[in-house]
Amino acid sequence: MSPIAPAFSFDKQDTAARRSLWRSLASSGNGRLGLALAAIMLAVIGLGPWLAPYPPTQIGLGLPNQFPTWAHPFGTDDLGRDILSRFLVGGRSVILVPFVAVVLSTVVGGWLGIVSAYAQIQPRLRWIDQGIASLLDLALALPPLLLALVLIAGFGTSPPVLILSVAAIFAPRTGRILRGATQAVVTSDYVAAAQARGESLSYILLREVLPNIAATAIAEFALRMTWGIIFVASLSFLGLGAQPPSSDWGLMVAQARPYITVSPIAVLAPAAGIALLSVALNLIADALADHLDPASGQPGVPL
């Protein structure tokens, strides 16, 4: 270990970056609004299953497509299930599936990007960067939704297939962003110093590179979560995500669609849930992006 203890400075940098990320989130109006909205939605989704007055999948609790009553504040759906209970339980899969998929895509895509950018500065390893970069370019040229639909058509609609498809679509996008962020870091003096000290590759990547692209990675994660929730909810709406009798919000909207004139609230409640959730996350992602690049102020590219 060298006398210049880099582990210490790494800790300081890391918390400083995180604190200022947090501060700029809390200081922007949109960021605060997004955080508040997200907190409310997460509370509803997290506590929902305990608050639900009836089991979400029990049929025949009331007449089919009943109007709201005291016993059923949101009315009942076409099978006489309690819509409020289904709504309270159905938020979990809306968040969980995209969350796992985005974690996976961030880890895989992130490592591809970091390794690629690190290989770029070493003449002997440049072919690795070129290989990964063209792979990412190729993957990015493919139509995302179509790709997911083809994979689901081939491998079915189980949650693992869903997660892997979404992760496969998002990973190259995250990879390209983090490759760009890493490129700026690996050419810096402290990485050259670490190399000169003879630090191991894993030390350099984990302790020098990773902390310095953490802010970009967090912002990218937030942005991917918003697209992930929209993407997975859309698949569930198409009948290709969550399967009956799940009360996933996307699926609830699709199942209530034929009875929209009779009981509009069965469509309205889950649709509003998804809308609030994705608006909240989008505001947070926008605020984080502004923090990284104050000049941008522009939304990300839709998928």
Binding site: A233, S234, V253, A271, A275, V279, L281, N282, L283, D286
Partner: peptide, 9 residues
Amino acid sequence: TVLTALPEF
């Protein structure tokens, strides 16, 4: 901002 955040459906 709100419209870009909403899913199509």
